[in-house]
Amino acid sequence: MSRYDESQNIKQNTPKHVAIIMDGNGRWAKARGKKRTSGHKAGVERVREVVEAAGELGVSSLTLFAFSSENWSRPQEEVSFLMELFVIALNREVKMLRKNGVRLQFLGDKSRFNPKLQSSINKAEEATADNEHLTLNIAANYGGRWDICNAVNKLLASKPDLERVEESDIEPFLATAGLPALDLMIRTGGETRISNFLIWQAAYAELYFSELLWPDFDADAFKAAVDDYSKRQRRFGKTGEQVVEKMSLNAE
Protein backbone atom coordinates (compact mmCIF):
# COMPACT_ATOMS: atom_id res chain seq x y z
CA MET A 1 0.00 0.00 0.00
CA SER A 2 1.38 3.42 -0.99
CA ARG A 3 1.67 6.34 1.42
CA TYR A 4 -1.19 8.01 -0.46
CA ASP A 5 -3.39 4.95 0.01
CA GLU A 6 -2.46 4.81 3.69
CA SER A 7 -3.38 8.49 4.08
CA GLN A 8 -6.71 7.93 2.36
CA ASN A 9 -7.39 4.90 4.57
CA ILE A 10 -6.76 6.96 7.71
CA LYS A 11 -9.13 9.69 6.54
CA GLN A 12 -11.85 7.18 5.71
CA ASN A 13 -11.56 5.62 9.17
CA THR A 14 -10.92 8.80 11.13
CA PRO A 15 -12.77 8.87 14.47
CA LYS A 16 -15.49 11.50 14.63
CA HIS A 17 -15.01 12.13 18.34
CA VAL A 18 -11.66 11.88 20.12
CA ALA A 19 -11.06 12.54 23.81
CA ILE A 20 -7.67 13.07 25.45
CA ILE A 21 -6.56 12.80 29.07
CA MET A 22 -3.63 15.22 28.96
CA ASP A 23 -1.39 13.67 31.63
CA GLY A 24 2.24 14.35 32.48
CA ASN A 25 2.71 18.13 32.72
CA GLY A 26 4.08 17.96 36.26
CA ARG A 27 6.46 15.08 35.53
CA TRP A 28 7.65 16.82 32.37
CA ALA A 29 8.56 19.91 34.39
CA LYS A 30 10.17 17.92 37.21
CA ALA A 31 12.40 16.05 34.76
CA ARG A 32 13.74 19.43 33.65
CA GLY A 33 14.20 20.81 37.14
CA LYS A 34 11.35 23.30 36.70
CA LYS A 35 8.18 24.13 38.61
CA ARG A 36 4.99 22.25 37.76
CA THR A 37 3.56 25.50 36.40
CA SER A 38 6.09 25.47 33.55
CA GLY A 39 4.74 22.06 32.57
CA HIS A 40 1.22 23.46 32.39
CA LYS A 41 2.44 26.30 30.18
CA ALA A 42 4.09 23.82 27.83
CA GLY A 43 0.92 21.74 27.85
CA VAL A 44 -1.19 24.68 26.68
CA GLU A 45 1.15 25.21 23.74
CA ARG A 46 0.77 21.56 22.79
CA VAL A 47 -3.03 21.87 22.75
CA ARG A 48 -2.88 24.27 19.80
CA GLU A 49 -0.84 21.82 17.73
CA VAL A 50 -3.11 18.85 18.47
CA VAL A 51 -6.26 20.85 17.71
CA GLU A 52 -4.82 21.78 14.32
CA ALA A 53 -3.91 18.15 13.64
CA ALA A 54 -7.41 17.00 14.57
CA GLY A 55 -8.92 19.50 12.14
CA GLU A 56 -6.60 18.40 9.35
CA LEU A 57 -7.52 14.74 9.85
CA GLY A 58 -11.24 15.40 9.77
CA VAL A 59 -12.07 14.83 13.43
CA SER A 60 -15.35 16.64 14.11
CA SER A 61 -15.22 16.72 17.92
CA LEU A 62 -12.18 16.85 20.21
CA THR A 63 -12.65 16.69 23.99
CA LEU A 64 -9.74 17.57 26.29
CA PHE A 65 -9.63 16.77 30.01
CA ALA A 66 -8.19 20.04 31.29
CA PHE A 67 -9.19 20.07 34.96
CA SER A 68 -10.97 17.33 36.87
CA SER A 69 -13.27 17.84 39.83
CA GLU A 70 -10.57 16.10 41.90
CA ASN A 71 -7.89 18.64 40.89
CA TRP A 72 -9.15 21.15 43.47
CA SER A 73 -7.18 19.17 46.04
CA ARG A 74 -3.89 20.25 44.43
CA PRO A 75 -1.81 22.99 46.13
CA GLN A 76 -3.65 26.32 46.09
CA GLU A 77 -0.77 28.03 44.24
CA GLU A 78 -1.00 25.52 41.40
CA VAL A 79 -4.80 25.74 41.19
CA SER A 80 -4.67 29.55 41.10
CA PHE A 81 -2.06 29.41 38.36
CA LEU A 82 -4.20 27.04 36.31
CA MET A 83 -7.23 29.31 36.62
CA GLU A 84 -5.22 32.32 35.44
CA LEU A 85 -3.69 30.25 32.64
CA PHE A 86 -7.19 29.32 31.45
CA VAL A 87 -8.13 33.01 31.23
CA ILE A 88 -4.96 33.95 29.35
CA ALA A 89 -5.28 31.04 26.91
CA LEU A 90 -8.94 31.76 26.20
CA ASN A 91 -8.36 35.45 25.54
CA ARG A 92 -5.36 34.68 23.35
CA GLU A 93 -6.80 31.84 21.29
CA VAL A 94 -10.40 32.85 20.64
CA LYS A 95 -9.59 34.86 17.48
CA MET A 96 -7.61 31.96 16.03
CA LEU A 97 -10.41 29.53 16.85
CA ARG A 98 -12.92 31.75 15.05
CA LYS A 99 -10.64 32.06 12.04
CA ASN A 100 -10.19 28.28 11.78
CA GLY A 101 -13.87 27.44 12.23
CA VAL A 102 -13.46 25.87 15.67
CA ARG A 103 -16.40 25.95 18.04
CA LEU A 104 -15.39 26.03 21.70
CA GLN A 105 -17.52 24.72 24.52
CA PHE A 106 -16.88 23.78 28.12
CA LEU A 107 -18.08 20.60 29.79
CA GLY A 108 -18.35 20.57 33.56
CA ASP A 109 -19.56 22.59 36.52
CA LYS A 110 -18.45 26.15 35.80
CA SER A 111 -20.07 27.58 38.94
CA ARG A 112 -16.98 27.00 41.08
CA PHE A 113 -14.73 29.08 38.83
CA ASN A 114 -14.10 32.71 39.71
CA PRO A 115 -16.20 35.38 37.92
CA LYS A 116 -13.29 36.43 35.70
CA LEU A 117 -12.83 32.94 34.33
CA GLN A 118 -16.57 32.36 33.94
CA SER A 119 -16.82 35.57 31.93
CA SER A 120 -13.93 34.52 29.65
CA ILE A 121 -15.54 31.12 29.12
CA ASN A 122 -18.91 32.61 28.22
CA LYS A 123 -17.38 35.13 25.82
CA ALA A 124 -15.29 32.46 24.08
CA GLU A 125 -18.28 30.14 23.69
CA GLU A 126 -20.44 32.93 22.28
CA ALA A 127 -17.74 34.14 19.89
CA THR A 128 -17.29 30.67 18.36
CA ALA A 129 -20.86 29.39 18.57
CA ASP A 130 -21.46 29.43 14.80
CA ASN A 131 -18.28 27.59 13.81
CA GLU A 132 -18.72 24.13 12.27
CA HIS A 133 -15.30 22.78 11.22
CA LEU A 134 -14.40 21.27 14.60
CA THR A 135 -15.95 21.33 18.06
CA LEU A 136 -13.35 21.68 20.81
CA ASN A 137 -14.74 20.60 24.16
CA ILE A 138 -12.78 21.56 27.27
CA ALA A 139 -13.72 19.37 30.24
CA ALA A 140 -13.03 21.56 33.28
CA ASN A 141 -14.21 20.88 36.82
CA TYR A 142 -15.57 17.73 35.25
CA GLY A 143 -15.90 14.17 36.51
CA GLY A 144 -17.62 11.22 34.88
CA ARG A 145 -19.60 10.32 37.99
CA TRP A 146 -20.64 13.95 38.42
CA ASP A 147 -21.81 13.96 34.80
CA ILE A 148 -24.06 10.95 35.32
CA CYS A 149 -25.48 12.20 38.63
CA ASN A 150 -26.05 15.65 37.14
CA ALA A 151 -27.85 14.12 34.16
CA VAL A 152 -30.10 12.01 36.37
CA ASN A 153 -30.96 15.01 38.55
CA LYS A 154 -31.84 17.07 35.48
CA LEU A 155 -33.95 14.22 34.15
CA LEU A 156 -35.87 13.86 37.41
CA ALA A 157 -36.40 17.60 37.62
CA SER A 158 -37.90 17.59 34.11
CA LYS A 159 -40.00 14.47 34.74
CA PRO A 160 -40.77 14.31 38.49
CA ASP A 161 -43.30 11.50 38.01
CA LEU A 162 -40.82 9.21 36.26
CA GLU A 163 -40.82 5.76 37.83
CA ARG A 164 -38.20 3.99 35.73
CA VAL A 165 -35.05 5.36 34.09
CA GLU A 166 -33.72 4.02 30.80
CA GLU A 167 -30.32 4.70 29.23
CA SER A 168 -31.98 6.71 26.49
CA ASP A 169 -33.53 8.97 29.14
CA ILE A 170 -30.14 9.92 30.59
CA GLU A 171 -28.10 10.60 27.46
CA PRO A 172 -29.83 13.88 26.45
CA PHE A 173 -28.83 15.37 29.81
CA LEU A 174 -25.15 14.40 29.76
CA ALA A 175 -22.54 17.12 29.27
CA THR A 176 -21.77 15.67 25.83
CA ALA A 177 -25.37 15.73 24.57
CA GLY A 178 -25.45 16.50 20.86
CA LEU A 179 -21.89 15.35 20.22
CA PRO A 180 -21.00 12.24 18.20
CA ALA A 181 -20.47 9.00 20.10
CA LEU A 182 -16.96 8.82 21.55
CA ASP A 183 -14.78 6.77 19.19
CA LEU A 184 -11.30 7.09 20.64
CA MET A 185 -9.95 7.97 24.06
CA ILE A 186 -6.24 8.78 24.35
CA ARG A 187 -4.27 9.05 27.57
CA THR A 188 -0.72 10.35 27.66
CA GLY A 189 1.86 9.97 30.41
CA GLY A 190 2.11 6.20 30.62
CA GLU A 191 -0.86 5.58 32.92
CA THR A 192 -3.44 3.01 31.77
CA ARG A 193 -6.72 4.12 33.33
CA ILE A 194 -9.44 6.63 32.39
CA SER A 195 -9.59 8.41 35.78
CA ASN A 196 -13.30 9.20 35.95
CA PHE A 197 -13.30 10.84 32.52
CA LEU A 198 -16.32 10.35 30.23
CA ILE A 199 -17.05 7.00 31.90
CA TRP A 200 -20.55 6.75 30.38
CA GLN A 201 -19.39 7.90 26.95
CA ALA A 202 -16.34 5.59 26.89
CA ALA A 203 -18.43 2.41 27.13
CA TYR A 204 -17.74 1.49 23.49
CA ALA A 205 -14.74 3.72 22.75
CA GLU A 206 -11.35 2.46 21.65
CA LEU A 207 -8.58 3.19 24.17
CA TYR A 208 -5.05 4.32 23.29
CA PHE A 209 -2.32 4.80 25.91
CA SER A 210 0.88 6.70 25.13
CA GLU A 211 4.08 6.73 27.16
CA LEU A 212 4.72 10.31 26.05
CA LEU A 213 4.14 13.06 28.61
CA TRP A 214 1.56 15.56 27.38
CA PRO A 215 4.01 18.40 26.51
CA ASP A 216 5.82 15.89 24.27
CA PHE A 217 2.66 14.60 22.58
CA ASP A 218 2.85 16.47 19.29
CA ALA A 219 0.88 16.37 16.05
CA ASP A 220 2.78 13.30 14.83
CA ALA A 221 1.94 11.45 18.05
CA PHE A 222 -1.72 12.36 17.67
CA LYS A 223 -1.74 11.20 14.06
CA ALA A 224 -0.09 7.93 15.15
CA ALA A 225 -2.95 7.38 17.61
CA VAL A 226 -5.54 8.01 14.89
CA ASP A 227 -3.60 5.72 12.52
CA ASP A 228 -3.67 2.98 15.16
CA TYR A 229 -7.42 3.48 15.57
CA SER A 230 -8.00 3.34 11.80
CA LYS A 231 -6.46 -0.14 11.64
CA ARG A 232 -8.62 -1.62 14.38
CA GLN A 233 -11.72 -3.68 13.71
CA ARG A 234 -14.31 -2.41 16.14
CA ARG A 235 -16.68 -4.94 17.68
CA PHE A 236 -19.61 -3.49 19.61
CA GLY A 237 -22.06 -6.33 19.92
CA LYS A 238 -25.70 -5.70 19.01
CA THR A 239 -26.39 -3.34 21.92
CA GLY A 240 -23.23 -1.33 21.34
CA GLU A 241 -23.97 -0.88 17.66
CA GLN A 242 -27.42 0.47 18.48
CA VAL A 243 -26.05 2.90 21.07
CA VAL A 244 -23.29 4.26 18.82
CA GLU A 245 -25.61 4.57 15.82
CA LYS A 246 -28.24 6.42 17.85
CA MET A 247 -25.72 8.87 19.35
CA SER A 248 -24.23 9.58 15.93
CA LEU A 249 -27.68 10.28 14.46
CA ASN A 250 -28.53 12.61 17.36
CA ALA A 251 -25.32 14.57 16.76
CA GLU A 252 -26.08 15.20 13.09
Rank of each mutant, 00 (worst) to 15 (best):
S2I: 13
R3F: 07
S7L: 15
S7W: 09
I10W: 08
I10E: 06
I10P: 09
N13H: 15
N13C: 10
K16F: 05
H17V: 04
I20C: 03
I21L: 15
M22Y: 00
G24N: 04
N25Y: 00
N25H: 03
N25T: 01
G26Y: 04
W28H: 10
K30N: 11
A31I: 00
G33N: 11
R36H: 14
R36N: 15
S38C: 12
G39C: 07
G43L: 00
E45K: 13
R46S: 06
R48V: 11
R48K: 15
V50T: 13
V50W: 02
E52I: 10
A53R: 10
G55S: 08
G55Y: 12
E56F: 08
G58R: 11
G58L: 12
S60K: 15
L62K: 04
T63A: 00
F65M: 04
F67M: 03
F67Y: 10
N71A: 08
W72I: 04
P75E: 05
P75Y: 12
Q76R: 15
E77A: 07
V79A: 08
M83I: 07
E84T: 02
L85S: 11
L85C: 13
F86Y: 11
V87M: 06
V87R: 09
A89E: 10
A89G: 03
E93S: 13
E93T: 09
V94D: 02
K95Q: 07
K95G: 05
K99T: 07
N100L: 00
L104F: 09
Q105L: 10
Q105S: 10
L107W: 14
G108N: 03
G108Y: 09
D109L: 03
